[in-house]
């Protein structure tokens, strides 16, 4: 991989796609194509396209338009916490 002179600002960020496994385990289906509507700016984006900050005590998914936190995931030995008050809704395609 190329080492581009990095502003750590962007270099620390990956896509929501990177946490597809955690999301799939929580929801029991692929969530990367589910659309999240930002409660702050009303932007809609697939969860796979959200900004993901995975290097911390938990995962923070942020709106690609306004950077507000859309959802947070914390995994403890006994539970998974999912908080999504930054999303007005998640829209999932009906499963056939």
């Amino acid at each position: 991989m190329e080492r581009i002179e990095a502003d750590m600002n962007t270099a620390l960020m990956v896509d929501g796609n990177a946490v597809a496994g955690e999301l799939q385990r929580i929801f029991g289906r692929d969530m990367t194509m589910a659309v999240a509507r930002c409660a702050g700016c009303a932007n809609e984006a697939e969860m796979g396209a959200l900004m993901a900050f995975t290097r911390g005590p938990g995962v923070v998914l942020r709106c690609p338009a306004c950077q507000a936190a859309i959802a947070r995931i914390v995994e403890t030995p006994s539970a998974i916490y999912l908080e999504a008050r930054g999303a007005t809704y998640l829209r999932l395609a009906a499963q056939s």
Binding site: M8, T10, L12, M13, V60, R62
Partner: peptide
């Protein structure tokens, strides 16, 4: 290690 919950 750098840990972060959001943009710098």
């Amino acid at each position: 290690p750098v840990l972060s919950a959001g943009p710098t």
